[in-house]
Structure formats: structure tokens, C-alpha cells
Amino acid sequence: MPLSLAQMRRNYTLGGLQEEAAPHDPLPMFNQWLQQARETESAPVEANSMHLATVDRQGRPHGRVLLLKGVSDAGFTFFGNYLSAKGQELEANPWAAMTFFWPALERQVRIEGQVRRLDPQLSDDYFDSRPLASRLGAWASPQSRVLTDRAALEALLAQTIRRFVDQPLRRPQHWGGYCLEPERMEFWQGRADRLHDRLDYRLQDGQWTRSRLAP
């Protein structure tokens, strides 16, 4: 008989997270963990997949899984439709949260901060690097809007293909990049008996401070 949800549990034993091994700036640590996840996680897990949480005008939270497309001193970059539900939510409330979970490493990272749109040229550059089918899809899909059926979406794609037969396929103005500028980053390492390690970084007056949180 399969275990009930209440009975399902896993004991985390792969490693620990100590202050003396953690840098004062969280970005190098994130980059190290991401690289280790890229080397460790296997299909169907994508190391750069993340849960993005936003809040709408009524204060209701919304979440979805996206792919991280860049990390720099400026922040964490992802792309999407500005007119989609998440785009409208970010327009109304630019605060958002990201969560990365790498089960093979028994690690999680939470990131919170304000989100701004990327410079249009950066969005152009990334759009031009995407596969042709993905670029066509960005034009064809009225993301988050109601469709009558799958055939309606396929008809929109066919129309888009015909439209761009004899003209360049440039980035649509309703599609582009975002950058989450971190003000809080928490690193979680699973430990035995649910006594997990949590190191919490907060940005204050341009400087990062670090604390240990109870699991």
C-alpha cells in the first residue's frame, strides 16, 4: 500500500552549511550552488528552473515555474510577456520572490527583491538568440488570455508564420526581460532530523548582513 502524504518524508544527510564556509556576499555562493546543481541534477530537473511568486492588485499571491536566464551583480534575469498575468502583477507591484530547489543536492535558495524591466537592447539580444519556434511563439501566444481550444492557438501560430515569411522576426514590444534586484537571499541545506541549516542574507545600506535562522 502506498504511503499517505502524512507518512512521506525524506531524511537529508548530504552535507551542512556553516558560517565559516559562507562568503559575506551571497552572489558568489549562489553561483557556486547553481554550477554544482548543473553538474548534479539530471533530467527532467533543470538546474535553472525556479518558482516565481508575484502579488496582484488585490494582494493575492500567484506562482509559476520559470527559467532563470542570467545572474550578475545587478540581479537575476528572466523573460516573458509583459501583458501576461505575471507581467500585469509586476506592473502593479514590483516586489517578487524566487525559489530554487535542487533535490539531488538537498538545497534550496529563496530570493526576494524588486523587479524592473531590462534595457530593451538586452531584451533584443536575448530574443534574437532564441530558436525560431520560440520567437514565433512569443508573437503568436496571447499569454494568459482565454482560448476556445488548442486549434485556436495553432491557428494563431500559422497566421504568425505567414506574417513573417518575408520580413525580419524582431522582438515584439510586449515581450522582454526582467531583472530581480535581490534584497534578501536565504540558503537552505537539508540536514538530518529536520534540523536544517538556513543562512539568511539581508541587504542594508548597500551592505549584506548574514544571520542563521532556526529550521
Rank of each mutant, 00 (worst) to 15 (best):
V65D: 00
K69T: 08
G75E: 06
L66F: 13
K86E: 04
A92I: 08
G75H: 04
G70Q: 06
S84W: 09
V65L: 04
L90G: 11
A85T: 12
P61V: 01
L67C: 03
N93P: 15
V65N: 06
G75M: 07
A85E: 13
N81L: 01
R64G: 08
A74D: 14
A85I: 06
V71R: 12
P94W: 12
E91Q: 15
F79Q: 08
N81G: 07
N81I: 00
Q88P: 03
S84L: 09
A74T: 02
S84C: 05
Q88T: 09
T77G: 00
E89W: 10
P61H: 07
L90Q: 13
G75S: 10
N81Y: 02
V71T: 14
V65I: 14
Q88D: 09
K69A: 02
Y82N: 02
F78E: 11
P94K: 09
G63K: 00
G87I: 04
L83H: 01
Q88M: 11
F78N: 08
G75K: 04
E89Q: 15
Q88H: 15
G75R: 02
L83N: 11
Q88A: 13
Y82C: 07
G63N: 07
F79T: 01
G87P: 10
L83G: 00
S72K: 03
L68M: 13
E91L: 13
P94F: 02
K86H: 03
